[in-house]
Amino acid sequence: MNQLMGQFSHPDSDAVPALECRNVGRTFMIKKGIFAEKQPLKAVQDVSLQVNRGEVLAIVGESGCGKTTLAKMLLGLLEPTTGEILLDGEPINSVSIKDIARKVQPVFQDPYSSLNPRKTIEQIISLPLKVHEIGSQASRRARVEEYMRLVGLPKRLIHSYPNQLSGGQRQRVAIARALIMEPKIIVCDEPTSALDVSVQAHILNLLQDLREELNLTYAFISHDLAVVEHLADWVAVMYLGRLIEFGKAVNIFNDPKHPYTRALLDSVLTPDASLGLPEITLGRGLPNPLTPPSGCYFHPRCPEASDQCSAEQPALIKNENRLIECHLYG
């Protein structure tokens, strides 16, 4: 597996990847009813990824495919039940959550719930410094102002409360809070999907600029493929907790191979209304992750499924310029 991943590294492949997942899995034990036995729910299974410093990794997939669970593991909020996550080559579970926090910070989807309504902008942005006991009151203040300028927030908002800010401004506050610890990696969990379209563009450009200026690495979780295409260097497609296709964004977008990736890309709405709604080639809804289908998890919805697909689970293999988990390319 890791040899497979190795073939994707940069020319200067000596560099340790900023973020690496090795066969990461997370199983929740779910209890239905008082007397029922606990059942395992495999939210994430056997995911291996890596991303180098300064690059953007996009993790895409439909709701319930394990994106957010993966993000929580990257932040150190959940421990993987199998496999390990490495930051700069160091396993994440060997360091304390405070040390992880200095390297990885989150930006969340909903800027209305990610800011404490009872705190001023200054209090919100300076919280990381306070928790980590960095600097004096005055130096924290100066640093908050510096980062407000960095993310494009007017200084006069420093004493405001979140409810006095627009959605875009709130998301800038969330970004400033994530950046003030000078982390190397930002985990963005759908950072634009709660914003309206014009504001989305501002925030995406801001993220893009910050990445160049601060040499940040992004793990960008999204189901908005237009956003992913705009930002990402690498794309990982997940389905029901499994990584099914991983490669350079250009390759995946120009030539999607896995039937699920193709269906995802086809489902993007076009601005041209005369084309109507896109034709979705997928049957049925997402299967119950408590009782996943036999063989390939995707076969019940796959238009090209064969007998082999329902019988045996495909392995993740290298195919030309990407990794893919599908019998069609076996």
Binding site: L75, S96, I100, A101, P106, S114, N116, L127, V131, A174
Partner: peptide, 13 residues
Amino acid sequence: VNDYITAAQALGT
């Protein structure tokens, strides 16, 4: 369940 609690947790608070 709000994200600001998750954000505080992610800081190691």
